[in-house]
Design a protein around this nucleic acid. Structure first.
Lengths: 340, 340
DNA sequence: TTCTGGCACTCCGGGAATCCGAGTGCCAAC
DNA sequence: GTTGGCACTCGGATTCCCGGAGTGCCAGAA
């Protein structure tokens, strides 16, 4: 019931509508795309497509507009990822290769993604939970005050101030430093938190109190998933190209303020597959007019976070999907290098 | 020529216009504010005010709208800072006191400021240049790879990876660590960069090469003002309340993407005074319809950065000024505490 | 069957015409 | 210097109207 030509018609409708932002009629369709049939034929197909819910007519005597279901079919069956141009590939590699640290990578990715797709880009900071402890440093600021620095394999650095009840000698601190690192270096963060719990019993008795306080703060820092919720957003200015302000721009602007909402949009599914969420398929009814193209990233199978773009349902899916995937691959590679 | 009653009239016009977003006429004016004179009298005053350029008539037979010059007079002569309510004070202190590190302070400030003023808030990260070195840590990852961690008095942590030509022994690294810290701990960052330059000559001859590479990267990190250019932005959703999308929202959205532009808007003057830049007074002609209320912050006289809000020229200046000043004071205090 | 040309019909979008009323400027009187 | 009265202006909203793009349906051709 959905034969090849109907699919061609649907594809043409989607492409034209995305390009022009106006309902597309049968005549314009056959002119722009060489469909080799007459407008009347196309009209019949359109009527069928409408019956099946793939396209929709704003009102009698207007052209057709794809429905969410229509976009879905387009994305699933009809879209072929638009290959990146050489210039775009070069832009990605030169920009991201020049990043000096983790923050830099994230921020440059956001910028890149928004410029490539001319849409709003979102990049989640790499999660702590999968990373391993690279090093823990204890710095004595005053005899009773120690700064803990936790360096993770992803390049993230967490710092915490600790006030001790009893002043600590440098030698004790040095021993604790060794002990802490032996217990946790190279270990996945979740395991490290557990391993540190046993530490107070393993050190010399007079160091137990200090060890307790320090490991307490460390495990807290490790299990503190606050940084998991961090996201970077860019390309907001692209919202200006949206048509309808109240239904499209305002809710999205509000969503962009709520990082939790953004994370949900990106889909914390944990899978690294490229996913497209179209309009009402998403979790928020206010955002029924926006789509999300997202994917996870991370070296090999290690999912460290997600990134993607959000935009109107009427968006360039093939282009966005290609850009999202390309950036995710690059980011994954860079994180892998920094990790080795 | 600008007597007291005319000033009253101007104030009333500004207040009404800010509240209603509509040109205000003589009759509505005397009704809303108990001016004790007749509309006709007010009309005369209005005509005079218009002659002097403080207000403007969009077209004959419309009400009056303040000009930039009018707002300027209002801000300079007529505005009294709207005191913060007890609830607002409490919101500020509880939120900011709960901040755990520098990033957290900045992000919470932005959020706070945008919620208090219902406008777009901008907070510059504290500059490195005024801060002192608290500690430098050298962590050996592999024999030829060292991670440098630079901890500053503001709480900022910078990290750099260094590849050495020759493998380094732990003992050598420990000696260098001591040397580096002796040379720079407690010293202002600019001076520290200079002091580190002499270090290679001061260490044992066989350590000179390592010292050179390490201090090179360190001084580079110290003089790298990239982080000076970092700003946090929040409350973009408030743009939705703007009237005219194309003249007001779009240019501002674009400006918000360019952090350099934002910094210029905040005014890097280096002074800590509360400044108000109204419409065309600012450096960008595209932003002729937006005003900036900004101030520096930092403990005592030490200017560490700026923060403020941007919004339409038609904004609540007294409220915004009060909120900006209050938040700046709190941030300054918190940074001071973290510093002690 | 499937496609095509023809035809009557629908209805949105935009331009012209119209109306309403808030607001003004001016003037004479207080 | 202030006030009430009054004629005038002009933008914004409303209504009306029309063209044209687009449709659905049907009968005939391939």
């Amino acid at each position: 019931m959905v034969d090849d030509r109907k699919l061609d018609v649907l594809r043409a409708i989607v492409e034209d509508y995305v390009a022009t932002e106006e309902p597309v009629g049968s005549k314009a369709l056959v002119e722009r795309h060489g469909l080799g049939v007459s407008p009347a034929t196309v009209r019949n197909d359109m009527a069928a497509l409408e019956d099946e819910g793939y396209i929709h007519q704003p009102h009698t005597s207007a052209g057709r507009v794809p429905t969410d279901k229509g976009y879905r079919l387009f994305v699933d069956k009809l879209a072929t990822l638009k290959p990146m141009s050489a210039a775009e590939r070069r832009a990605i590699s030169t920009l991201l290769d020049g990043a000096v640290d983790l923050d830099d990578v994230v921020q440059k990715s956001v910028r890149l993604l928004s410029q490539l797709t001319r849409q709003v880009a979102i990049v989640q900071y790499p999660t702590l939970s999968r990373s391993t402890v690279r090093h823990i440093e204890l710095v004595s600021l005053t005899p009773t005050r120690v700064m803990l620095i936790l360096i993770l394999s992803t390049g993230r650095v967490e710092q915490r101030l600790v006030d001790l009840e009893q002043p600590i000698a440098d030698t004790d601190l040095a021993e604790l430093r060794v002990a802490v690192n032996q217990a946790s270096a190279g270990v996945q963060i979740a395991a490290a938190a557990a391993a540190l719990g046993d530490l107070p019993d393993a050190v010399r008795p007079h160091q137990a109190d200090w060890a307790r306080t320090i490991t307490g703060v460390l495990t807290e820092a490790m299990s503190d998933h606050r940084s998991d919720e961090r996201v970077a957003v860019g390309g907001t200015a692209n919202l200006a190209r949206y048509g309808d302000f109240d239904t499209a721009v305002r809710p999205l602007l509000e969503a962009l303020e709520e990082h939790v909402v953004l994370l949900k949009l990106l889909g914390e599914s944990g899978t690294d597959a490229l996913t497209v969420r179209i309009g009402h398929e998403g979790p928020y009814s206010e955002l029924a007019a926006t789509s999300v193209v997202a994917t996870g990233y991370g070296p090999q199978e290690h999912h460290l976070g997600s990134l993607g773009v959000v935009g109107p349902t009427r968006m360039d899916y093939p282009g966005s999907m290609a850009a999202v995937r390309a950036v995710a691959r690059y980011v994954s590679r860079i994180l892998d290098e920094g990790n080795q």
